[in-house]
Amino acid sequence: MTVLSADRLGRWYGQVVGLNELTVDVGAGVTGLVGPNGAGKSTFLKLIAGEIRPSRGTIRVLGEDPFANRRLYRRFGFCPQQDALYDDMSAFDLIRLLLTLSGFGRREAGERAETTLARVHLAGDMHRPVGGYSKGMRQRVKVAQSIAHGPELVVLDEPLTGLDPVSRRDVLALLRELGASGVHLILSSHVLHEVESLTENILLLHRGRLLAQGTVTDVRRLLSKHPRRVELKADRARALAREIIAYDEVTSVSVPSESSISVETRDLDRFCARVTELAARTPYGIRSFESGDASLEAVFDYLVG
């Protein structure tokens, strides 16, 4: 079953690319959308939620065009990233209001609101204004409003951001339970291991493009083969270059000046370990070591970190 299908999906904000040429099918179950900040995750989720329209390409969610689609919203729940709620309302009143707008009668909406808020461990605080809630409690209210009407698909934008460890554990447990009950989940995170604890299926976005799709293992393998550029500064750059060029993981070495070398490697982890060892035991005078491709570095760091 295909829950979501995007074909050459693109979205620009003026000159800024939010998402570019994204073609992907997302199947049933739990899917993690990962990528560093600015990768295009939120743009993708806003397109899924129908808050914005694509600049080009198409997107179908549960077989429907999502923009302002009332039929879809009966089957769909959305937990936005922004920490915004009606602060003067209690969690119970808020969820009941949204449930009545989803078509439930007042009594049933009240019952569902109570049940859902109990599920997110807010039973004792549900009648207090949400303006007085902690960040974690507010996040749980946001999750609660996205699941209270019993949707088939729930989309959550960074649902674990800002949560304390206990709230994080509770929300993760809730999402696991939802996934196990047959609800399709798409959730975004810039921290891989958070998503990894919920699902093996991930989409990796980077700079508005789909970098990889598959299991976490597949994606790690894929990225580890991606050549990486590294800049080294050393007193004896030429001698260091002669030694480094013999490494298996190094694909090219250049010496732009007497005190620096530029290296391209297909296994950054292994290369880092060897350079660290080299710096400790040889007189090349290695002074610094940094990746020249900072953005990819960020992707790699969060993947392996």
């Binding site: 129908g50 009332r70 919203y73 915004a84 709620l85």
Partner: peptide, 15 residues
């Protein structure tokens, strides 16, 4: 401005 409109526009109601 309060960014709460998301909750309303993702409900099955006419805008």
């Amino acid at each position: 401005e309060d960014r709460t409109i998301t909750y309303l526009i993702t409900r099955p109601i006419p805008r």
